[in-house]
């Protein structure tokens, strides 16, 4: 039983990690919580659905289907996130810390309601390009092929991200901006462009998570993003907001905690959401910088 929980936790954690990475990348560079991230990931899943429906022969099934959906979701969500940054956040950056946050809430409401107006509370069924098979694991547990795909995709993306951040020129520029954006500017880095790229990457990861979510639940709806978004944010904070490894660590820890809680606490399923938020509060109280985060002192 425990092994099964661990497998499930790993899978859930993988999805949370991807979403958390989106939050942390943006926070690292702008010290801003992108409240609209949850809606961006939701729309990612819808972009994937759209592609699968429009071109069912090419993208409806199999590996091509999988790749097509990911491409659509990631490209679409990435672009969307970058556009939102350009229109709704950038003009407000210099006004105050609060203004972009409020704008982000507004964007979140607009996006969620746009979808709601389109399909109301309906759930649209999400294509399943991977044939679901249960593969036996040790200890009586099984892992489904879907779970393997989720884990594989998530890990692949995380490795790609790591490579991008550490080895490419743009990744280095992003790290420089995250460290000290004005100095980065003085070194000739076009901060606005790097920020736009960061939002794109963060959005793309969220879009991928949206696809994985859709595949896990078999359907998507207008408010798909809210809970996973909130919880993934918790995970990012848990690991140390702004810290990439922290986001991954936090995502997996939260995934495990949630699955274990719903398994072992009486009536656990009802309370699993509370677990995430309670973890959030506890972490912020005792270690606000998170597990891998750093404290930044204000100069007086």
């Amino acid at each position: 039983m425990l092994i099964q929980q661990l497998v499930n936790g790993l899978t859930l954690g993988a999805i949370y990690s991807l979403i958390a990475l989106g939050y942390t990348l943006v926070y690292g560079i702008l010290a801003m919580i992108n409240f609209a991230h949850s809606e961006v990931l939701m729309l990612g899943s819808f972009f994937a659905l759209g592609v699968a429906m429009l071109l069912p022969s090419a993208f409806g099934t199999g590996t091509a289907g999988l790749i097509g959906m990911f491409a659509a979701a990631m490209l679409g969500a990435g672009l969307l996130n970058a556009i939102i940054e350009r229109l709704a956040y950038r003009p407000l950056r210099h006004i105050s810390r609060l203004a972009p946050l409020i704008s982000a809430i507004g964007v979140s409401i607009v996006l969620q309601n746009a979808v709601f107006l389109w399909i109301s509370t309906q759930s649209l069924s999400f294509p399943q390009p991977v044939a679901i098979r249960q593969l036996p694991l040790f200890g009586g547990a099984t892992v489904s092929s879907l779970q393997l795909v989720i884990l594989g995709a998530a890990l692949a993306l995380m490795v790609l991200l790591h490579f991008w951040v550490e080895k490419t020129k743009m990744g280095k520029a992003m790290r420089a901006c995250a460290d000290d954006i004005s100095t980065a500017g003085l070194m000739g880095i076009n901060a606005d462009f790097v920020i736009a790229v960061t939002f794109f990457v963060g959005g793309a990861l969220g879009g991928a998570a949206g696809v994985l979510y859709g595949m896990s639940y078999g359907s998507i709806k207008y408010n798909l993003g809210f809970l996973p978004g909130a919880k993934a944010f918790t995970a990012a904070v848990l690991g140390g907001i702004g810290n990439i490894r922290g986001a991954v660590l936090g995502g997996f820890i939260l995934g495990f905690l949630e699955v274990l809680a719903s398994g072992y606490i009486p009536n656990g399923a009802e309370w699993r959401d509370v677990v995430a938020f309670s973890v959030l509060i506890v972490v912020l109280l005792f270690r606000p910088s998170g597990i891998l985060g750093e404290k930044i002192a204000e100069k007086v």
Partner: peptide, 27 residues
């Protein structure tokens, strides 16, 4: 408990608490 947090963190924690309250009432 939470007022030593600032800005964004406070926002998230208060949101989290709001959800905890609603879910607790619900359960």
């Amino acid at each position: 408990t939470i007022l030593r947090l600032r800005g964004d963190y406070l926002a998230i924690v208060t949101m989290g608490f709001g959800e905890i309250a609603r879910l607790t009432i619900n359960n």
